[in-house]
Computed example of a mutant assay.
Amino acid sequence: MHDSSARPMERGSTDREQQARGPAKDPTGCGYVTRSMSDTATGSNEKRPSRSRWRSWIEWGLIVAFLLFLQFTPQGKQLLGLMQRGILATGLITPDIAFAEKNDVPASWDVHLESLDGESFSLEAYRGKVVFMNLWATWCAPCIAEMPYIQNLYEDVASEDIVFVMISVDESREAARQFVQRRGFTFPVYFPMGGLPEPYSTRTIPTTYVISADGQLATVHTGMAKVDTPEFKSFLRSLVRGDERL
Results as ranks from 00 to 15, higher is better:
residue 152 N to I: 05
residue 155 E to W: 04
residue 106 P to S: 09
residue 134 N to E: 06
residue 74 P to S: 09
residue 227 V to S: 07
residue 228 D to T: 14
residue 53 R to M: 08
residue 165 V to S: 05
residue 48 R to P: 01
residue 177 R to S: 12
residue 52 S to Q: 13
residue 193 M to S: 12
residue 233 K to D: 00
residue 177 R to T: 13
residue 217 L to P: 12
residue 241 R to C: 00
residue 219 T to P: 08
residue 239 L to G: 11
residue 244 E to F: 02
residue 151 Q to F: 12
residue 43 G to Y: 10
residue 244 E to Y: 11
residue 132 F to S: 05
residue 95 P to H: 04
residue 173 R to F: 10
residue 132 F to M: 01
residue 51 R to I: 08
residue 96 D to H: 10
residue 177 R to D: 14
residue 118 G to I: 11
residue 206 P to L: 01
residue 40 T to V: 11
residue 24 A to P: 01
residue 172 S to H: 11
residue 118 G to C: 09
residue 140 C to V: 05
residue 123 L to W: 02
residue 181 Q to A: 09
residue 55 R to L: 14
residue 32 Y to G: 00
residue 137 A to F: 00
residue 154 Y to K: 02
residue 109 W to T: 06
residue 127 R to H: 11
residue 115 S to D: 07
residue 36 S to R: 03
residue 109 W to Q: 00
residue 104 D to E: 13
residue 147 M to Y: 09
residue 128 G to I: 00
residue 28 T to A: 13
residue 225 A to F: 02
residue 237 R to L: 02
residue 187 F to P: 04
residue 179 F to N: 00
residue 84 Q to D: 07
residue 74 P to Q: 09
residue 5 S to A: 06
residue 207 T to E: 07
residue 185 F to Y: 15
residue 69 F to T: 05
residue 233 K to R: 15
residue 168 S to P: 03
residue 211 I to T: 10
residue 39 D to A: 14
residue 86 G to M: 07
residue 178 Q to C: 02
residue 62 L to C: 12
residue 224 M to T: 01
residue 29 G to I: 10
residue 95 P to Y: 00
residue 15 D to A: 14
residue 189 V to S: 03
residue 221 H to P: 04
residue 194 G to R: 06
residue 8 P to L: 07
residue 60 W to C: 05
residue 56 S to F: 14
residue 139 W to Y: 09
residue 82 L to F: 08
residue 8 P to F: 13
residue 137 A to N: 09
residue 96 D to F: 10
residue 179 F to Q: 00
residue 234 S to I: 02
residue 240 V to M: 01
residue 131 V to E: 01
residue 209 Y to S: 02
residue 231 E to N: 00
residue 11 R to Y: 12
residue 213 A to E: 10
residue 13 S to N: 08
residue 186 T to E: 12
residue 86 G to K: 08
residue 116 L to P: 03
residue 153 L to A: 10
residue 85 R to L: 05
residue 189 V to H: 04
residue 109 W to E: 01
residue 168 S to W: 11
residue 129 K to M: 01
residue 200 Y to K: 04
residue 189 V to I: 13
residue 245 R to Y: 15
residue 202 T to P: 07
residue 185 F to T: 04
residue 129 K to T: 06
residue 161 D to C: 07
residue 195 G to K: 04
residue 65 A to Q: 04
residue 234 S to A: 15
residue 99 F to H: 15
residue 191 F to K: 04
residue 92 L to N: 08
residue 190 Y to V: 01
residue 215 G to Y: 13
residue 45 N to I: 14
residue 217 L to E: 09
residue 77 K to T: 12
residue 68 L to C: 13
residue 77 K to L: 12
residue 193 M to A: 08
residue 211 I to N: 09
residue 118 G to Q: 07
residue 109 W to M: 08
residue 228 D to N: 15
residue 184 G to A: 07
residue 68 L to R: 08
residue 169 V to Q: 13
residue 20 A to Q: 10
residue 218 A to T: 10
residue 239 L to R: 04
residue 128 G to A: 13
residue 87 I to H: 07
residue 243 D to F: 04
residue 133 M to R: 02
residue 6 A to I: 13
residue 135 L to C: 05
residue 242 G to R: 08
residue 57 W to T: 00
residue 147 M to L: 14
residue 4 S to T: 12
